[in-house]
Design a protein around this nucleic acid. Structure first.
Length: 327
DNA sequence: GCTGCCGGGGT
DNA sequence: ACCCCGGCAGC
């Protein structure tokens, strides 16, 4: 469980801009401490997962937070729209709580206090007004608040890949908690490049593989910008269940779970948001095969569902070929 | 029946 | 250009 680390008036939210580039930028619900009483209203929602709400937490009270510079699409797009007023209020409450928690140690004691003007009311004013926790470092914590589109956000986003990998979700985006390892498990590294799925036992090997096979770079160079990291993931695999695990991860993960832009490319330099045509060429796999076999990747419709149509890519919304989850 | 998306139409 | 949707084919 990650907690905000107060630093003066700033709060550094550890979990967000993930320290390591995600191999598969899943719709990452971030484990965030929820104050008890905060409704995690999403029915059946993953416990403790409120990533979009964090943004909401930051934004709701502050109002203007400015457009998020990047990530035009909500990466995690967890924002469901159907939010009852009541839930909305509760969320605002939660927002206030989290905000106060994260904003200043001064108010730690009264998270629930009404925003009544008190001597220290300045704190209250200041917290929401400038969202110190958020805006103080627009580059890092700003990442909390994407989702420009959703005016209301429910924590309930399907976040499909997770649901489809009850276990996989963990290793895929690197659970923060202690990694428990079965005696029979082994760490493997799986290439997430679409239609590759190569599994190697060493990360260096995998990086090399990705560099050479997919990125078209020279294998020998140690100078890696880290881009490879995006394209493989670490697996704790049971030797026997290896194939199962792989099959469950294989086809769609690299793309399906990664909406166009991912956060934090700044650290990586220009990283192609998606494995684009070039890799295919590199692999020699036929691109625009004579007859396109109907994409197997889940598209927006399936991923987000009809209820979250607003989260679809525009093409999908227009019943055109999906742009987000390319085949 | 669901899904992806082509083709065509409206603005 | 943008948006919508009928309808078809694959599953």
């Amino acid at each position: 469980m990650q907690v905000p680390v107060p630093m003066g008036t700033e709060v550094i939210w550890l979990p967000v801009p993930l320290p390591v580039p995600l191999p598969v930028p899943l719709p990452v619900p971030l484990p965030v401490p929820l104050p008890s009483g905060v409704p995690s209203q999403a029915a059946g929602m993953m416990p403790g997962i409120i990533s979009p709400n964090i943004s909401e937490c930051c934004r709701a009270p502050m109002g203007a937070f400015g457009p998020r510079p990047s990530s035009p699409q909500p990466l995690f797009a967890l924002a469901g729209r159907k939010l009852s007023g009541k839930a909305g209020i509760d969320e605002v409450m939660a927002a206030a709580v989290l905000t106060s928690l994260s904003t200043s140690p001064l108010v730690l004691g009264h998270p629930r206090a009404a925003p009544a003007p008190e001597p220290g009311g300045e704190v209250w004013k200041e917290a929401p007004a400038m969202s110190s926790s958020c805006s103080s470092s627009s580059n890092t914590s700003g990442d909390w608040s994407w989702d420009p589109a959703s005016d209301r956000s429910t924590p309930s986003m399907p976040s499909p890949p997770l649901s489809s990998h009850p276990d996989g979700a963990h290793f895929v985006f690197g659970e923060p908690g202690p990694r428990k390892r079965k005696n029979s498990t082994k760490v493997m590294f799986k290439c997430l490049w679409k239609s590759c799925g190569k599994v190697l036992s060493s990360s260096s090997g995998m990086q090399k593989h990705i560099r050479t096979a997919h990125l078209g770079r020279k294998p020998d160079l140690e100078q890696s910008d880290g881009e490879e990291d995006f394209y493989y993931t670490e697996l704790d695999v049971d030797v026997e269940s290896l194939t199962d695990g792989l099959s469950s991860l294989t086809p769609v993960s690299p793309t399906s779970s990664v909406p166009p832009a991912f956060p934090g490319p700044e650290a990586q330099g220009p990283v192609p948001p998606l494995p684009l045509p070039s890799p295919d060429l590199a692999l020699g796999s036929p691109r625009s095969p004579p007859q396109r076999p109907r994409g197997e990747a889940k598209k927006c419709r399936k991923v987000y569902g009809m209820e979250n149509r607003e989260l679809w890519c525009t093409a999908c919304r227009w019943k055109k070929a999906c742009q987000r989850f390319l085949d």
